[in-house]
Amino acid sequence: MHSMHDKPDADPLLAVKGVTLQYRTRDHLVTATYRVSFNVHRSDRFVIVGPSGCGKSTLLKAVGGYIRPVEGEIRLNGTPISKPGPDRVLVFQEFDQLLPWKTVKQNITFALTASGRLSNREAEDRAMHYIGKVNLTGFADSYPHTLSGGMKQRVAIARGMAMEPDILLMDEPFAALDALTRGKMQEELLQLWDDTKFTVLFVTHSIPEAVRVGSRIVLLSAHPGQVKAEMNSFGADTLDEGGKLLKDKIEDLLFDTPASQRSATHV
């Protein structure tokens, strides 16, 4: 029993096993990912990184329960995922993910009461707690359209965290922000994680973001997405024993050309 827990993949929180995803457009059947497997453990900051069109968002939606795999299976706590549910909360890239007819606080309390997790009173307390965590206490009664993009994303993150899901799914949540705000938000996310050690599955196309945010990084190849590598990250982009930055290593793996050559042509 004890030895089983010591094994790294003994009982993952989220197990993605041989998942092939396809979707239909008007005149094509597109394979988004092909036989992707990985395991996410409790308190992982698990990042999926890959070029556009590698199916990483589709994969996240499959974990969310919005898309069924055509092959393979996804299990959360050992139970196969069949439909969306409040045990996996999605944070989207779009600023319009907050419901405009509800204030910041109502957006969060609605999430908590609609999913039947809490009574009104408890929901309000918890909402205010998480609004405080993302430093928006002064805006609790504002409507979303009066907030900036970064503030909206912070509310969305607060909402996701307030639901205290088994796993928080983030679909390029900072991609639509300006570089300064993005950096700040990454910092805040890491601070929040330090507080509560929640499990997060984070999708991004930005390698620096993956290195900064992730504790474990999965690299997907371009269309259709296949797992190219799975590596550890320690936040800071340190040199490995071969004298290579993690960022460059990822770039080499993703683009099959040494970083030195690429940067030469860029300059």
Binding site: P84, P86, L90, F92, E94, D96, Q97, F110, A114, S115
Partner: peptide
């Protein structure tokens, strides 16, 4: 109605009627 709001509504596990009335 924006697909994002729809997904958010589904994420909360609302009932069919709740989904229509509240989203």
């Amino acid at each position: 109605v924006s697909p994002t709001w729809r997904m958010v509504g589904q994420n909360y596990g609302l009932s069919k009627i709740g989904y229509v009335v509240r989203i």
